[in-house]
Amino acid sequence: MPPTPWSEDFKQMELADADFVVRSIQDGQAFHVKRERLEQGSNVFRAYLKIPYRGDMFACCESGYVLDTLDEDGHTLDMDESAEKLGMLFQLLHHLPEPYEETRAGFTKLQIELPTEIAIPFPLLPTLYALADKYALSDTILQVLHTHLGAYASTYPLRVYGYATTLGVDDVAACASSFLLAPPLSSYTAADVKVVPSAPAYHRLVQLHDYRIKKLGELVMGEEIFPHGYGKCPRHGAKTQEVWEARKKVVGGKIQAATDVAAEMADIGKEFAGCDTCAKAANAAISMLRYKCAKVPKRVDKIPV
């Protein structure tokens, strides 16, 4: 098994069976790598290393893009890239991490705390994605990066939502949106929301909040404690109905996208502590409300367009 790639000094990566050398023009650092891995994982390397004469192939590209020339033997390549970035790039090409387990099955596992050390550290992911784009890395590598981005959906939900939306990784973006129900969107600063790449992407979050607030409000206001008179207490029925309706108005007036409506209504239980019939009816109504509210979409990809 290769070493954990993201806990090492990137500049020190070297393979015992290397057959190719890449040297950083910026730092003078040489990397001993496998030519086959470069060609398999990168369309840029594949195109460059396959043609007989390379010369100044990339001279017309943006400054600092990729390559200078191979040496006379064709075994050493100079690249106008920092040693740190080359090290990260070659780690992906030679020691690709496993997909992050908790997100492999569809980005559904709630991650209360920061992921364990098996996830690529979050601050590295933007640079890795930039390298993946610059060197046209394979879909296999990109899919692994997506799972590691998804690992942080609950710890950095707004940033993950922004990155994933920019990258077009819709399942990761949708997962992150489910962790953006609280606080209210209005609490974010302008600097915070800059990570969201477009007005439509931000608007989807607004729509999600609006949909949930309206739907939760409809559910709580429509829930009856004695539906069709069923289970109505002959002694306290009228009073219980009055208390229930009053509580619904209080809860309905302060609903946010992340409000646990059933829990808010459960506070009414102490009002009926002296009557088993009324307490039973309240518990049944709250349970039904909890069931209905659980079905209200929590992700941007689940709300009506």
Results as ranks from 00 to 15, higher is better:
residue 83 A to H: 08
residue 127 T to E: 15
residue 208 L to Q: 03
residue 225 I to Q: 01
residue 35 R to D: 05
residue 190 A to S: 14
residue 85 K to D: 14
residue 120 I to C: 11
residue 289 L to T: 02
residue 262 A to E: 13
residue 113 E to V: 05
residue 80 D to M: 08
residue 13 M to H: 06
residue 95 H to Y: 04
residue 113 E to L: 11
residue 4 T to D: 15
residue 247 R to M: 07
residue 199 A to D: 12
residue 159 R to V: 09
residue 292 K to S: 09
residue 16 A to L: 12
residue 140 T to A: 13
residue 75 H to P: 07
residue 24 S to F: 03
residue 94 H to R: 02
residue 304 P to G: 01
residue 188 Y to H: 11
residue 268 I to T: 15
residue 13 M to Y: 05
residue 1 M to D: 10
residue 14 E to T: 10
residue 131 L to R: 07
residue 100 Y to S: 13
residue 276 D to I: 04
residue 80 D to H: 10
residue 26 Q to M: 12
residue 166 T to A: 14
residue 169 V to G: 04
residue 182 A to N: 06
residue 143 Q to G: 05
residue 193 V to L: 14
residue 215 K to V: 01
residue 199 A to L: 13
residue 93 L to M: 10
residue 97 P to Q: 10
residue 123 P to L: 05
residue 138 S to N: 12
residue 253 G to D: 13
residue 152 Y to A: 05
residue 247 R to K: 13
residue 16 A to V: 13
residue 262 A to R: 05
residue 72 E to C: 04
residue 200 P to H: 11
residue 98 E to I: 01
residue 90 F to S: 04
residue 126 P to N: 10
residue 299 R to G: 00
residue 248 K to V: 12
residue 159 R to Q: 14
residue 103 T to G: 06
residue 63 S to N: 09
residue 150 G to W: 08
residue 157 P to M: 04
residue 222 G to E: 06
residue 69 T to Q: 12
residue 253 G to M: 11
residue 53 Y to N: 11
residue 152 Y to G: 12
residue 70 L to R: 12
residue 208 L to T: 03
residue 293 C to K: 01
residue 211 Y to D: 00
residue 132 A to C: 12
residue 47 A to C: 04
residue 280 K to V: 09
residue 3 P to Q: 11
residue 31 F to Y: 07
residue 305 V to Q: 00
residue 100 Y to Q: 14
residue 211 Y to N: 00
residue 130 A to D: 15
residue 197 P to R: 05
residue 32 H to L: 05
residue 238 A to I: 08
residue 115 P to K: 11
residue 6 W to H: 15
residue 301 D to C: 03
residue 188 Y to C: 03
residue 56 D to I: 04
residue 216 L to A: 09
residue 149 L to W: 05
residue 215 K to C: 00
residue 116 T to V: 10
residue 150 G to C: 08
residue 28 G to T: 03
residue 40 Q to V: 07
residue 64 G to A: 09
residue 279 A to I: 01
residue 148 H to K: 08
residue 236 H to N: 15
residue 3 P to W: 11
residue 37 R to I: 00
residue 97 P to R: 11
residue 135 Y to M: 09
residue 268 I to W: 06
residue 117 E to G: 10
residue 36 E to M: 05
residue 89 L to P: 02
residue 49 L to N: 13
residue 131 L to Y: 10
residue 298 K to F: 00
residue 123 P to N: 14
residue 120 I to E: 12
residue 107 F to M: 05
residue 296 V to F: 01
residue 62 E to M: 01
residue 87 G to H: 08
residue 232 K to Y: 02
residue 222 G to F: 03
residue 93 L to S: 10
residue 254 K to S: 13
residue 162 G to I: 10
residue 108 T to G: 13
residue 147 T to K: 06
residue 184 P to H: 12
residue 274 G to R: 10
residue 161 Y to F: 15
residue 184 P to N: 14
residue 2 P to I: 00
residue 15 L to N: 09
residue 40 Q to T: 06
residue 8 E to D: 14
residue 177 S to Y: 04
residue 47 A to Q: 11
residue 156 Y to S: 12
residue 276 D to L: 11
residue 103 T to H: 03
residue 55 G to T: 01
residue 296 V to N: 01
residue 250 V to N: 08
residue 188 Y to G: 04
residue 105 A to C: 11
residue 176 A to W: 13
residue 257 A to C: 08
residue 98 E to W: 03
residue 305 V to S: 00
residue 196 V to Q: 02
residue 208 L to I: 02
residue 258 A to Y: 04
residue 140 T to W: 03
residue 290 R to I: 00
residue 203 H to P: 00
residue 116 T to G: 15
residue 57 M to V: 14
residue 131 L to P: 09
